[in-house]
Design a protein around this nucleic acid. Structure first.
Lengths: 232, 232
DNA sequence: AACAAATTCAAATTCGACTATTTCCTGATG
DNA sequence: CATCAGGAAATAGTCGAATTTGAATTTGTT
């Protein structure tokens, strides 16, 4: 997980290996479902779709395998990680556990920077929701940033890494199974209210209630996801 | 994390890519400290040490990067992940949290298979400790197997994956910082007693006490590791 | 001497051809 | 008809040379 989508891609002249560009593209397509769960990833096809050579693409696939976005076994190549109800439940449960624990810690130890970061991330999230030209990718980015701001910069690196991994995996379920939901006005409004509630409770240092609100925030979509997954 | 060291390597005719062999070797050398923390990993040197070509080695390094055993940034190559007190504390804390939670769950829901698996893993661990010809690698393997047996096969795949990752990382600290300790008779005896205590409490379904014993089991080495790390 | 620019060299990255393995197809056999 | 063997095509894995980059060193200038 080397870098993330920049808010607005600046005219970056930074020298980066091609593999990073390919990595970003493939990961985005796995998250969005353009590369479907279980789909075989043939190196030759990938090169013509994403550029680079067979070598570069295999490097990327290996990195993604290490992060469990793609599966690989013996000499049979790579494929996009499967979806399953069991996996979904595990991902959501573990994420809940890690994230609410981190939130409580942040509320107990958070400083002014943490508060300001949260407010700022919330503002950006709302702004980009309203704006016209904002892509889904960017919205998902700001959404993730908000949740990261909640748990704060002081959360341990490993903790953040695990939360980030689980977030990306659950994002995949959401984007594949409920692709339209995210644009429904009612849904957006409810989600926004929940975000604001969590933030307010966090600012007021009401740890228990904030953690509870965070759990509730997630449990709503949980059932929808499971239903959508079963009927595939 | 594709495969693990088999107890006694059977005459396997399974066709495996070379990269797997290289992966195992390099990971083992990172865990043991033969490849030192922070050390630069030059692809050319790796090929002559571990075989394969630049391409194969880079694939392995990418997989290891995804699992955070090696670091990489921009076009400056790969290096073994650094050690630091902060990192150590994070690894141990998070592992404690995930593992004791899993243990409690296992005790609440574990079946006969779980009990038997635990007893078996404990027996093997003791047997291999006593045996003459057993290598350190094998001992570490059985040690890890025992701890995995504790939390049982029913622990979610993601949960197990995170625990395994953190175990491997903390193993590295142990093997690098306290290489001799593991062989001292007093130390071995204490550790064995602790293992037996945890297992007995688990079999008797005394969840709280078992979790407590597990935490204590770890907290002992924690201070030693931090001290050893500071004086480097 | 102190700094900046140019040079050089080792190392990282990238590439696509080469080899090995799996998969798919076909047709003979029970 | 089902099954299996053999071979052809497709795909995976492997390799090392060619290219690009980063960093150390030298050279030139103030």
């Amino acid at each position: 997980m080397h870098t993330d989508i920049p808010p607005i891609s600046a005219t970056s002249t930074a020298k980066e290996p091609i593999t990073n560009r390919i990595y970003d593209s493939i990961l985005e397509d796995i998250r969005s479902g353009k590369l479907e769960p279980g789909q075989k990833l043939k190196v030759r096809e990938l090169t013509s779709e994403y550029g680079g050579s067979t070598g570069s693409c295999r490097e990327v696939l290996n990195r993604l395998a290490g992060e469990r976005f793609v599966q690989t076994k013996g000499m049979t190549g790579f494929s996009v990680r499967d979806l399953s109800p069991e996996d979904l439940i595990e991902v959501l449960d573990l994420r809940d556990q890690l994230e609410s624990q981190a939130l409580v810690q942040a509320i107990q130890h958070g400083d002014t920077d943490w508060e300001e970061g949260m407010v700022l991330a919330f503002h950006r999230l709302e702004r980009e929701r309203i704006r016209e030209g904002t892509s889904l990718i960017e919205r998902e980015y700001y959404h993730r940033e908000f949740h990261l701001a909640l748990i704060g910069a002081h959360t341990s690196e490993w903790h953040q890494f695990f939360i980030r991994t689980l977030s990306l995996h659950s994002e995949r379920y959401r984007r594949i199974l409920l692709p339209k939901r995210i644009f429904e006005p009612d849904y957006v409004r409810v989600v926004d209210e929940e975000h604001e509630l969590i933030m307010r409770l966090a600012l007021e240092r009401r740890a228990e209630e904030a953690a509870e609100a965070l759990k509730k925030h997630r449990s709503r979509s949980r059932t929808d996801l499971l239903v959508a997954l079963e009927s595939r």
